[in-house]
Amino acid sequence: MDLSDEILIQRAAQEGDQRAYSQLVRRYQSQLRYSLRQLCNGDQALADDMAQEAFIKAYKALPAFRGDAKFSTWLYRIAYNLVMSEKRKKAPDVDQEAVDRAQSDEGHEEVQQLSMARDLNAAMQELSEHQREAIHLCMHRGFSHEEAASIMKMPLGTVKSHVNRARAKLQSLLDPWREEVVSG
């Protein structure tokens, strides 16, 4: 039986139940690692290190988690801060081989799906870093604008503006392609 985040957090924080926390880690590891890979420009090793550190930091801070926000929002905020401070520490050097390897590892079966994913990925690369992050959090992860603003530590208006501009840009890049797919 899948227990809710609230119950697992309560058990981990109040009773020191690490098994409860391991369920939370399993529940969010894929999403968080994928998001951080986007944020780290495909550097899987760095993204995984940051994700691991975020889970450890979140565990230590669990007693202070008041439940005002969702656990996922809180976790993303911790992870986002870690990545940002890591990026500030050293200039980002993109491991192009790692990116290519990651992209080739993604085993999409259907050609159209592969092509769509590639085109979508290419369109996403046309966005600025903040626009990409805002779109990822709001449209991919389904966070509200307010939650994304709190994760990105940006004013709400700025996040909305990033989302709107990114959406307009993606639409102009992808709409002709969508129509092409429908018309065959």
Binding site: V25, S30, R33, Q52
Partner: peptide, 16 residues
């Protein structure tokens, strides 16, 4: 749809 599921592959054990 374009998001792959990332296997745990020992990640959870490392965290724990």
């Amino acid at each position: 749809h374009s998001e792959p599921y990332i296997d745990d592959d020992g990640f959870c054990e490392q965290v724990m």
